[in-house]
Design a protein around this nucleic acid. Structure first.
Length: 602
RNA sequence: GCGCGUGUAGCCCAGCUGGAUAGAGCGUUUGGCUACGAACCAAAAGGUCGCGAGUUCGAAUCUUGCCACGCGCGCCA
């Protein structure tokens, strides 16, 4: 790449300068950052050498002069301008600016378009992940009710991150942890019991006592579940109704719990699929207990002297590993805390061979990080292997007015939102912002099919580009002369061209300087996709993909408005169509990464 | 009180490892469809980068002290 050549030129010159004693006290070549100048009149790439000022004891400009003196080309216009075979180099302030000469630029742009057309959906694929085994655990909602809006954010972010990391060569495994062992399942079963009785006409209600009602799920989603239960267990339901038991007996209770749990879980699963979020595994908390893993973890911690008893409870010395205080592992009533199974769960993940554990949690769980890492370290593993991505919550608003999720107001579920807004728009909006920011989700905006909505802006670009490709192989209407023009290409002709594409005739296009500029900008944007993907994976920031897609769409729309694609000149049209095809490929690839569709018509 | 996060244009947000005149979108004003999709494009207006100090040749970016907002600080999950 030309970028690296710029870097090499500067580094080589700098080394010569040091060798000649022009710069003293500098022993290590600094890590130069290659930038794209904000003002393109300066050039295509720039390297800032101001960081060397402290060694040269000169101004940034003089420092730069001092370096380019050693680039070694004779074709020197002045002490601030030099020509190489590929670049025009000029100095402004502490910047060494590189302007690529036309021939060099052709070959780079050609090469890039060729790469995109050849690799197609694989464009952007790389191996920065080095096949590392990564587990991404996200959503992990309790199986006690429908998803709320926040779960949607983790689903969209987690699945997009998984897609991006796969593209970067990580061996990604996606898991959903089901908390099906705690007391909340008992509460769920007890709540279903009441609904089952109600459905059979018995006058019974949830307790009114504010304390007691906390152990019930009063949402009406259990009514459906109750109906299903009665249908599948008619005899038992009748018995329950006749006896009108104040509480279900243990056997029945277990059955109720199990039924409600699996009903909730299957509803969650199907919603996730609908939402383009595909897990490799749903890991049941109960399976940890069944396999004795919890006990095994406790034994191991005990052997290492990390547990102690106090006030009738069992404690873990997490404060030895940086947690602010020790944590209870086993309560006085003999039951385990949530943390206990989580310790076993993460221990198990590492034992399954994953070297990087990514957990996506709501910001309200941030206090958990220290104790989780403490447990990993206490069990002899590297706490750095756990990466917790803390996400801020979602604020839902309708027409600018915030919807408060009070206890009294009816909850808006993720499913409601998807039905209202659609999968594509919901996913796009959910990952549009960095998870460090509270997400402002305006239902009306996301629904709107106008210029306020970035999802449609991007999809429209894709549809528009597809439309041009269609027009190239279809008859067209010439409204100026009012006649029908024949198709420029046959479909196979065009496909063959893209498939066996060897050299785009960009230089054909170069006669028009304005067009050339637009073409260069467009191709550069397409090239950028590769680094965007890498950065999104490296920094766990899937929002970069949406940001990029909006930029690419904007670049394309602008390109479209100033460059005519189809014309009588077949060769010229072909060359331009190769660009359009590339745009289609990259837009579609990006939209696929974020789990949104790429419609060819809208 | 302590911990984490946020504070950039009227609104919602970018700003890459400290670097050139702080950038998009929406909204506002104005202009552009008689050939490829106007769900688009172009132009203008709009900023004490929360406030103060420090480090630096250079700070929206790093350090520190305040201020405001959000979340958390359970033998809940």
């Amino acid at each position: 790449m030309l970028k690296n050549e710029c870097l090499n030129i500067v580094v080589k010159a700098l080394k010569t300068a040091i060798g000649n004693g022009a710069i003293e006290n500098l022993h290590e070549i600094p890590d130069f950052h290659i930038e794209t100048p904000k003002n393109r009149d300066f050039g295509d790439y720039a390297i800032n050498v101001s960081c060397l000022c402290r060694y040269t004891r000169k101004s940034p400009l003089d420092t730069a002069k001092c370096i380019i003196k050693y680039i070694g080309y004779i074709d020197t216009k002045s002490d601030t301008q030099i020509n190489t075979d590929k670049f025009e180099i000029s100095l402004v302030g502490g910047y060494i600016n590189f302007k690529i000469k036309k021939d060099a630029l052709f070959s780079v742009l050609n090469q890039s378009i060729k790469e995109i057309l050849e690799q197609k959906t694989n464009y952007g694929k790389n191996n920065t992940g080095n096949n590392e085994k990564v587990m991404i655990e996200y959503v992990s909602a309790n199986p006690t009710g429908p998803f709320h809006i926040g779960h949607g954010r983790w689903a969209a972010v987690g699945s997009t991150l998984a897609n991006v990391m796969k593209l970067c060569g990580y061996d990604v495994y996606q898991e959903f942890y089901v908390n099906d062992a705690g007391n909340q399942i008992n509460n769920l079963g007890r709540s279903l019991y009441i609904r089952v009785l109600q459905e059979q006409g018995i006058k019974i209600n949830f307790p009114e006592d504010e304390e007691k009602i906390k152990s019930y799920y009063t949402g009406d989603y259990l009514i459906d579940c109750a109906k299903k239960f009665i249908q599948e267990n008619p005899e038992l339901s009748e018995k329950l109704a006749e006896q009108n038991l104040p509480e279900a007996d243990t056997e029945t209770h277990k059955k109720l719990c199990l039924f409600a749990k699996s009903d909730m879980l299957s509803k969650q699963k199907s919603l996730l699929e609908k939402f383009q979020t595909h897990f490799d595994n749903f890991f049941m908390e109960t399976s940890l207990h069944e396999r004795g893993l919890v006990q095994k973890c406790l034994d191991e911690l005990k052997d290492k002297g990390k547990l102690y008893e106090q006030d009738g409870a069992l404690w873990f010395k997490s404060s030895e590993y940086g947690d602010e205080k020790d944590r209870v592992i086993k309560k006085t009533d003999g039951s385990y805390t949530y943390l206990t199974s989580d310790i076993a769960y993460h221990y198990d993940k590492l034992n399954r061979g994953f070297t990087k554990l990514i957990d996506i949690w709501g910001a309200d769980h941030h206090g958990y990080i220290a104790r989780m890492k403490a447990s990993i370290e206490a069990l002899g593993n590297n706490p750095e292997s756990l990466i917790v991505l803390l996400g801020q919550l979602v604020n839902l608003s309708i027409k600018g007015e915030q919807v408060r999720m009070g206890k009294r107001t009816k909850m808006i579920t993720l499913e409601d939102l998807i039905d209202e807004v659609g999968v594509d728009a919901t996913r796009f909006w959910m990952i549009m912002r960095d998870i460090d920011n509270t997400l402002e989700f305006d239902v009306e905006l996301a629904k709107s099919k106008t210029d306020e909505n970035p999802v449609f802006y991007v999809q429209y670009a894709h549809a528009r580009a597809c439309s041009i490709l269609r027009n190239a192989v279809n008859e067209r209407q010439d409204t100026v002369n009012n006649k029908v023009l024949p198709a420029i290409f046959s479909l196979t002709e065009l496909d063959n061209y893209f498939d066996k594409y060897s050299n785009i005739r960009l230089n054909l296009l170069w006669h028009d300087e304005k067009e050339a500029e637009e073409i260069q900008k467009l191709v550069e944007k397409l090239i950028e996709y590769k680094t965007v993907v890498i950065n999104a994976a490296k920094n766990y920031t899937p929002y970069l993909i949406t940001k990029y897609l909006r930029e690419l769409a904007a670049t394309f729309h602008k390109f479209y408005s100033s460059v005519r694609i189809l014309s009588d000149d077949k060769e010229l049209s072909k060359a331009k169509l190769a660009l359009i095809k590339s745009v289609v490929i990259v837009l579609k690839s990006g939209l696929t990464l974020i789990g949104a569709s790429a419609p060819e018509k809208m």
